[in-house]
Design a protein around this nucleic acid. Sequence first.
RNA 1: GGAGGGGUAGCGAAGAGGUCAAACGCGGCAGACUGUAAAUCUGUUCCUUCGGGUUCUAUGGUUCAAAUCCAUAUCCCUCCA
Length: 375
Amino acid sequence: MRFKYELKQKSQRNMARLGSFVYNGKEYETPMFMPVGTNATVKTLAPEELKEIGTGIILANTYHLWLNPGDDIVKRAGGLHQFMNYAGPILTDSGGFQVFSLARPKDITEEGVHFKNFKNGDSLFLTPEKSINIQMNLGSDLVMSFDECVKWPSTREYIEQSVERTLRWAKRGKDAFNNPEQMLFGIVQGGEYADLRKKCALELVKMDFDGYAVGGTSVGEDKKTMYKMVEYATTYLPEDKIRYLMGVGDPIDLIENVMRGIDIFDCVSPTRLARHGHAYTWHGKINISNSKYKDDFSPLDSACDCYACKHYTKAYIKHLMSEKETFGARLLSIHNIYFLTQLMAKIRANIATDTLEEFRDAFIKDYYGDGYDYK
RNA sequence: GGAGGGGUAGCGAAGAGGUCAAACGCGGCAGACUGUAAAUCUGUUCCUUCGGGUUCUAUGGUUCAAAUCCAUAUCCCUCCA
């Protein structure tokens, strides 16, 4: 294993935790936000820019890299780190989310999942073993079990049998996994059902994974339901293992789920929103394309000291986005990832003083204004 | 000077008597986006006190009815001299 998670401090008031790990001689602290780089690149950003922003782990995707350029190519390149020139830790998703986003119910079988390559119509078949093998070829540091991210809403009956299958898939993946340099994660599913989440978590813990993820959230359910789903799972996870909430990145969701025991998060939001012209600010999200910014010569957020805010104005970035200049998306990506990274730093500081609940209340007041219902 | 073709909403471009306030694309304005088929998708885009009112280069005409037909003017393009 290239790193080991260490639990440093626990809140006395909720499930929040401070932790850390050392990778490649550098210490990283959790809770942490992980930017997504599906195709072995965090869209529009160079690794040096991520380093300057201060991110830690980044994500890449098994499904996408399997198809292009092919995990054999990445392996021949010397692995994902070499291939994309990224020295920090890399987590690969298993393709489980593509079961949710790309496959139809009838494509999902006990053996694996059938996909159609939308680019050329090729029939594809991904199994738990194949997903693990691809991830071993990619050489990521954190490997995810192949799971089914269940659609919302689904019947309890469907979720029940899907959880059983995801557990069998987790076991099959674990049996196929044999690289001691990498960490293998089990993924807790179970929809909105407390007993299913509990059972799934406990069964995975029996299999003894290196880390645990909570999946199947942020698929359309409301926030309160999502928070419950997470708590149903984290309650039964071992304290000495790192916990990952998959696909969650709304600022308020980061805070709420840290309070429910999550250590690492990933989300496409900061980069996708950036490409669509949106910027997080401490006073809420803004759409820089709005015409009211055409002569606004202030930074995206006056309280931000990211590269974009230190050197560029809203008017300039609005102009870049209006003209579809890629530099605009890059500046917004830098800003948005920096914002979430700073948010996580504030979260960690408030865990240290055990004041996360007060921080959440203050954050919500500034970000959403009055009238946001969250309790 | 001769022969043709053409001027349609911010732009490009359909429409060739009524179902036309006028397809479609771009641009504009706004919205959505949570393990990225996502630099994508959705709505909207003459004016309006939401009853209606003004449009298809201009003017005049034909017709119950004209962006569509006729006449004149005007501007643009192509070819021939």
